[in-house]
Amino acid sequence: MIARQGSLRDFFARLADTLSDLLARLADTVRVIGAPLFSGLRETLREIFDESAYARFLTRHQLETSPQSYAEFLRESETTRSRRPRCC
C-alpha cells in the first residue's frame, strides 16, 4: 500500500514536471512567435496612425514631445495628409 502511494506520488510529481516543462516550452514558443508578431502589429498600427511619422518628425527637428511640437507636426503634415485619397 505504502509502495503504491509512493509510486502514485512519483507519478503525479512526474506529471507535474512534464506539465510545467510543457508550459515553459509553450511560453517560450509564444514568446518566440508572439513577441515579433505583437511588435509587428504595434509598429503597423503606429505607422497607420501616424505615431511613427510624429516620432520621425521629433527626431528630424530634434524636438521633445510637447503640445507645441505636436501642433507643429500637424501643421507640417496637413497638406500631405489632405491630399491622401481614401478608397471607396
Binding site: 509587428g40 509598429e43 511619422a53 500631405t80 491622401r84 478608397c87
Partner: peptide, 23 residues
C-alpha cells in the same frame, strides 16, 4: 523622413490595406 521612408514590409502592407479597404 517625411514622405519617403524605408518601412518594414508588414507595416507597409497594413498601411496599404487600411487605405484601400473602404465601404
Amino acid at each position: 523622413g517625411r514622405d519617403f521612408v524605408r518601412t518594414n514590409k508588414w507595416v507597409v502592407f497594413g498601411h496599404h490595406f487600411a487605405a484601400i479597404a473602404g465601404p
